[in-house]
Design a protein around this nucleic acid. Structure first.
Lengths: 342, 342
DNA sequence: ATTGGCACTCGGTCAGAACGAGTGCCAGGA
DNA sequence: TCCTGGCACTCGTTCTGACCGAGTGCCAAT
């Protein structure tokens, strides 16, 4: 019983099941693939695959269906690359090309990916912790409030209002603005060190609370993971795809609506930022997502480099077209990176 | 045959149908409501209501179900106010109270409303066209690019990058920044008139393109309706609610994902900004939403006044609890307005 | 190691029967 | 004029039992 053929059988089962959505039996398998052996032989192989926990039969007399483990093996060792068609590539390019600002780029990317994969697409906004500060702006609002606007390298803007104990002095604010920007502009949080906290020494003691307040807000914003945002598209594909999970969409939608869940997942998948990584079923470690798989990759890093700025990905049913999804995710991430770099 | 009782019957039908999700027959009706007449009499009334197009029977021998028109009459003339419970009010208040910035307020509001109504909640970001400008900031980026940051009254921030023909002169940019802010700060788009376009006259001809470019971006941003954003929550409730439309969720999700559709609808419903307005079924004028109703109201205006800044609302199945939804939407809008004003 | 044959399991489908909820209509009564 | 009880009728729902077919596991033969 050749090991190679057994894997061929597994591949065939995955492919057929993905294509037909129905448990695949031994007869159908030999008919659709040129395996060169009889159904009976396939049955023996299938029994072995089932013992190995790679496939199961839903009912006693039904065909076989891949398990999480089966899909995992398929993705890791059996999937063959499936390059996008030329028209698809061109579509991606032109669609992303004429985006206006960062919001627009993200919006277009996520819609595009949803359409390419016919699944739910997920795009994480460029992470603040990994982007450099471009500019900090201080805008007095009334006597006791100060609006702090933080602009990052990728054009993302965050704002906070802080309350100050003493009435604001315009000159002090202006000086603080200059000092802040010379100290921080162009640097990442990690590179800032004590540069910001030392600023307070340059001001009169009476201004200490003000300076420390502003510095705290800036550092806080850059550090705060909870401020990271995720955008979705294509949730309608969850149901339109046909009775995939039909009666269990609800938990999936709930999970997807929880930014926290998505951010954790994306964070966990970031081990190798340049490569595409896949989480299958229970590997997501989330109850609502046991019947879904995630395919994600980093984007925004220098070409081929290892320092991605955020992640983009696709969520679909366990039995999704892994090679196709991987190709689409990778392609969109690549163009997205190019746009952001340009 | 008293007209009053016929309306009582309609109200009873709507209430029972909403509660049970099943067509309601004459017998069940007299049992559950003290109408003081026999089923046969009710049947006559029902026949009349059906002739009037207010109810229909799904099958020849089934109970009656309200039509769009029936719900409309119910909402307009039969619904009785259903005040929120004290705990509910307190929950709203405390939940919204400790929100940090605008994003947080909007996010909390939409989740809260989704949870209160067990439906999909929709919150429109404060409309740029109706808010006043607080501050405009210009940040040179390299030699030829200028980042324009626009901060509005409600703390919303928009940014655009523009390309300029000639290398930037820092002094000119600084001067432009000051002039822009004195001319525009605190005003709405409608109040600006030609104040901005006249600015170009104050600068050297060589700076004309720069000034006009910046002015154009500012005006464009304030005017651009497409920049208005809508946030959703509770899409999982669409399916969880039970087989409401079960096999037709897809078009609903698709419609909800299209910001354009939502913005059009919210816009159309803004006739009377202070009141709660309701769109039932086909009244939404959108194919994917024929089986859904919208309940929305404005928020952000002065208490009781007529100048709302944006809308908040709830989307649910045709047979939803209109009184309850209306109460929830109104309550959240009120607290939301208070937070924004404070 | 592969193959053909065979008995067995079991989900899906179909037809028919029984059921019951609900209606419309009509004739009689307040 | 309006209400009521009665009655025949419709029709969707549910249940049953039979049948079909896909698919399996095992075994003896090659």
């Amino acid at each position: 019983m050749s090991e190679d053929r057994r894997l061929d059988v597994l591949r065939a089962i995955v492919e057929d099941y993905v294509a037909t959505r129905e448990p695949v039996g031994s007869r159908a398998l030999v008919e659709r693939h040129s395996l060169g052996v009889s159904p009976a032989t396939i049955r023996n192989d299938m029994a072995a695959l089932e013992d190995a926990g790679l496939i199961v039969q839903p009912h006693t007399s039904a065909g076989r269906v891949p398990t999480d483990k089966g899909y995992r093996l398929f993705v890791d060792r059996l999937a063959t690359v499936k390059p996008l068609s030329a028209p698809e590539r061109r579509a991606i390019e032109t669609f992303l090309e004429d985006a206006a600002d960062l919001d627009d780029v993200v919006d277009r990317s996520v819609r595009l990916l949803a359409q390419l994969t016919h699944q739910v697409a997920v795009v994480q906004y460029p992470s603040l912790r990994r982007t450099a500060l471009r500019h900090v702006e201080l805008v007095p609002v009334g006597d006791r409030h100060l609006l702090v606007v933080i602009i990052t390298d990728h054009g993302r803007v965050e704002q906070r209002t802080i309350e100050v104990p003493d009435p604001l002095d315009v000159a002090t604010v202006a000086r603080l603005r200059v000092r802040l920007n010379t100290a921080a502009a162009g640097r990442r949080l990690a590179e800032l060190g004590t540069a910001l906290s030392d600023l307070a020494d340059d001001f009169a003691p009476v201004d200490g609370p003000l300076v420390r307040g502003v510095v705290a807000v800036v550092e806080d914003t850059l550090a705060q993971e909870s401020e990271e945002r995720v955008v979705l598209a294509g949730t309608a594909n969850l149901v339109r795809g046909g009775g995939d999970f039909a009666h269990t969409i609800s938990p999936v939608l709930e999970a997807l609506e929880e930014q926290v869940v998505l951010l954790r997942l994306l964070g966990e998948m970031a081990e190798d930022e340049a490569a595409v990584s896949v989480r299958i079923g229970r590997e997501t470690q989330h109850e609502g997502l046991v019947e879904t798989s995630f395919v994600t990759t980093g984007y925004g890093g220098p070409d081929g480099g290892g320092t991605a700025v955020a992640r983009i990905g696709s969520v679909g049913p366990l039995r999704m077209d892994y090679p196709g999804t991987i190709a689409s995710v990778r392609a969109v991430a690549r163009y997205l990176s190019r746009i952001l770099a340009g």
